[in-house]
Design a protein around this nucleic acid. Structure first.
Length: 113
DNA sequence: CAATTGACTAACG
DNA sequence: GCGTTAGCCAATT
């Protein structure tokens, strides 16, 4: 390995996210060494060279939601996956109106080093 | 080598 | 309250 791509650094961080927790793009970006490069994180995860190895479903928006239409099979599938890992979700009725659907409870499940 | 794009984020209207 | 614009920074073409 020894690839010089920024994305590999992102994969390394995402791979470190413990089961039952999630991280935001900005957080992964910061851990990857680019505190302002959240976009790059999403771009790198889209490249996802090792599906199944890299838990890209554990990476969510700052709001606790996912990329609409880009989730590996649908945001509903991701919700089930995260719930299965023990991540706490917040129903649309329990949150301030605005978000399109279920969000991850970042207050309880955001990964903390 | 320069311009464009992009799984983002925050601020503004 | 919701939509749009601007800013960041690196990969892609």
């Amino acid at each position: 390995m020894g690839s010089s791509s920024f994305n590999e650094r992102v994969y390394a961080v995402v791979r470190r996210i413990p089961r039952g927790m999630v991280a935001t793009y900005g957080q992964v970006a910061a851990l990857a060494g680019a505190p302002r490069n959240a976009r790059m994180v999403g771009y790198a995860l889209h490249a996802n060279p090792e599906p199944g190895v890299i838990p890209c479903h554990r990476v969510v928006f700052r709001d606790g939601s996912l990329a609409p239409g880009f989730a590996f099979g649908g945001p509903d599938e991701q919700r089930v996956l995260l719930e299965d890992e023990g991540v706490v979700f917040v129903p649309p009725a329990a949150k301030p109106a605005g978000a399109p659907g279920w969000r991850v409870d970042l207050d309880h499940c955001q990964w903390r080093e």
